[in-house]
């Protein structure tokens, strides 16, 4: 079954929104995601472009300015709520895990 739009976030979606907690242009988002995850997660430019476009259209981010061809974006309140919901969901999963196996156990 296809994923319902933004009901849950993929890793890429999560990190892009996370990076846009501060105003950033698209190219900086790619660099920041890589730095934030120690290179574990890389966001491809095609993926980034399409996600920025969808987040923008759905009101999760807003365009804050453009310098030449570079556009800057920032998370909106709606986007913050979405990110928070994802965070809560992840925390709930971790809590469930820890209840089952204990903290730090595998």
């Amino acid at each position: 079954m296809p994923r319902e739009k933004f009901q849950t976030l993929t890793e890429q979606m999560f990190y892009i929104l996370l990076c846009l907690g501060e105003e950033r242009c698209g190219a900086d988002v790619m660099t920041e995601v890589s730095a934030l995850t120690n290179g574990r997660v890389a966001v491809g430019p095609g993926t980034l472009y399409n996600l920025l476009d969808q987040f923008l259209r759905d009101g999760y981010i807003e365009e804050t300015g453009a310098s030449g061809r570079r556009r800057s974006y920032r998370l909106t309140e709606k986007g913050r709520v979405l990110l928070r919901e994802e965070y809560d969901r992840l925390r709930a999963r971790i809590a469930d895990y820890e209840r089952r196996f204990g903290k730090g156990e595998a």
């Binding site: 993929t10 890429q12 966001v43 399409n50």
Partner: peptide, 14 residues
């Protein structure tokens, strides 16, 4: 290189 597409669900939607 970093692939152009890194999220298959986004690629499929596009």
């Amino acid at each position: 290189p970093v692939p152009l597409e890194t999220d298959e669900s986004v690629r499929l939607a596009a």
